[in-house]
C-alpha cells in the first residue's frame, strides 16, 4: 500500500507520503474500532435495561452503577447458601456475567449475615448493607387482582404467611365483599417501606402464574411528584395545620331547604355547626368530619366507625336477620 514517489530523490521528500499513509492508517483504525465501539456502546445501553423478572442480589447498586462496579467474578453466587443467584449467560437478557435471580425460581432467603454482600470484592453489592431487612432487591406488587385468590374472596393468604417481614411488608386489608354482600375480603397489600423484594411471596403464590410478583423497584414503584404534600403527614410533622384555618374559605354545601349538616361550615355565622353541635365553637375547622374519626355525634351512621347502636330500619337492626356485614367490619355489634 505504501507509495513512495520515485521521482523525488531526497529522503526528506519521502516524509510527506509516509505521513499521509500514517494518517490514513490511523483513520482506518479509528473508524473500524470506532464502529465496534459504537456497537458495544449501544449494546451496553440495552444491557442497562434489566428485564422485569431479573432481580439483583441484596445491596446491589442501582443498575446504572452496578454495571460499572460489578466485575462478574461470581463470588456472590458462590457464597449464597441457597443457590439463589446465578451469573447471566450470553443468551440471558441480563448483562453477561452479572449475578441475578428470579423470584419464581429460587427467591432470596434473606440470610442475616448477608454472605453474598460480604463476598463482593468491588462493592457492586454495597458493603454498607448490614441489616438484610434494609435490602431493596425489588418490590412485590399484587399484579393481578383478577386471579389473586384473596381478591376472589378466599382465604389463601399464602403470600402474607411466607413473607419474612410479615405484617409489615405485606398486610391483609379487610374490606367488605360486595359480591356476596356478607363476607370479608382480606386483600394482601404490599408496603414499600418494608418490602425487601426477596421474592418469597411470588415463589409461594399458588396460582399457576403468580398473581403477586416482584419487580425491580424502578418498575414497581410509582412516584407522586415533589410538589405533592400529604396534608395529614405535614400536620403531624408540624404539630398543627400549616395554614391559617380561620381564613380558610369553605364553600357552602348545597343542602335541601331547612336542612343542616353537622360539622358543616356556615359562612354566615363563622361557625362550623349550629349551636349545641360539635364544631359550633369558632375555631379550626375539624379536619376529620364526625363519623370518620372526628368527634362522634349521635347521628353517625353505622359502618363508618361510629359506636352507636343501630338505628331501626338498618340491616341488622331487626332480630333474627343476618347482618350483611359481620361484626367487626363496621356493622352492628
Amino acid at each position: 500500500m505504501a507509495r513512495t514517489d520515485e521521482t523525488q530523490p531526497a529522503a526528506a521528500r519521502k516524509a510527506a507520503p509516509a505521513r499521509r499513509q500514517f494518517i490514513f492508517d490511523a483513520a482506518r483504525m479509528a473508524c473500524g474500532v470506532g464502529m465496534l465501539g459504537l456497537g458495544l456502546g449501544l449494546y451496553a445501553k440495552q444491557a442497562k435495561a434489566l428485564p422485569a423478572l431479573a432481580l439483583r442480589p441484596p445491596g446491589a447498586l442501582p443498575e446504572n452503577d452496578f454495571l460499572g462496579a460489578c466485575i462478574r467474578c461470581g463470588l456472590c453466587v458462590r457464597d449464597c447458601p441457597y443457590d439463589t443467584l446465578s451469573l447471566a449467560k450470553p443468551e440471558t437478557p441480563v448483562a453477561t456475567g452479572t449475578p441475578f435471580f428470579t423470584a419464581r425460581g429460587i427467591p432470596c432467603e434473606m440470610c442475616e449475615d448477608i454472605p453474598c454482600v460480604k463476598a463482593c470484592p468491588t462493592g457492586a453489592l454495597n458493603h454498607r448493607l448490614t441489616d438484610i431487612n434494609q435490602a431493596r432487591m425489588g418490590l412485590a406488587a399484587l399484579i393481578d387482582h383478577e386471579t389473586c385468590l384473596n381478591f376472589l374472596g378466599l382465604r389463601c393468604d399464602v403470600c402474607y404467611r411466607v413473607c419474612p417481614v410479615i405484617d409489615k411488608a405485606i398486610t391483609l386489608e379487610l374490606i367488605p365483599n360486595s359480591r356476596t354482600g356478607r363476607h370479608a375480603m382480606f386483600l394482601p397489600t404490599v408496603h414499600s417501606d418494608h418490602c425487601t423484594g426477596c421474592g418469597k411471596c411470588e415463589k409461594a403464590c399458588v396460582t399457576e402464574e403468580a398473581s403477586i410478583k416482584v419487580f425491580p423497584i424502578a418498575l414497581a414503584k410509582g412516584s407522586l411528584g415533589k410538589h405533592y404534600r400529604l396534608g395529614w403527614e405535614e400536620q403531624k410533622k408540624s404539630g398543627g395545620s400549616l395554614i391559617d384555618e380561620k381564613s380558610m374559605v369553605d364553600l357552602p354545601d348545597r343542602l335541601p331547604e331547612g336542612a343542616t349538616l353537622p360539622g358543616h361550615y356556615d359562612p354566615a355565622s363563622g361557625m362550623t355547626a349550629p349551636p349545641g353541635m360539635p364544631g359550633s365553637v369558632p375555631g379550626p375547622v375539624p379536619s376529620a368530619p364526625p363519623g370518620l374519626g372526628g368527634p362522634s355525634v349521635p347521628s353517625t351512621p353505622p359502618g363508618l366507625g361510629g359506636d352507636a347502636a343501630l338505628p331501626p330500619g338498618m340491616p341488622g337492626a331487626v332480630a333474627g336477620k343476618v347482618p350483611s356485614h359481620p361484626p367487626g367490619l363496621g356493622g352492628g355489634q
Binding site: L40, A44, A47
Partner: peptide, 14 residues
C-alpha cells in the same frame, strides 16, 4: 474510553 462513556465495564459484555 467506552467504559467511561457508558458507565459499563464494556469489554466484559462480549
Amino acid at each position: 474510553a467506552g467504559s467511561a462513556v457508558t458507565g459499563v465495564v464494556l469489554w466484559e459484555l462480549i
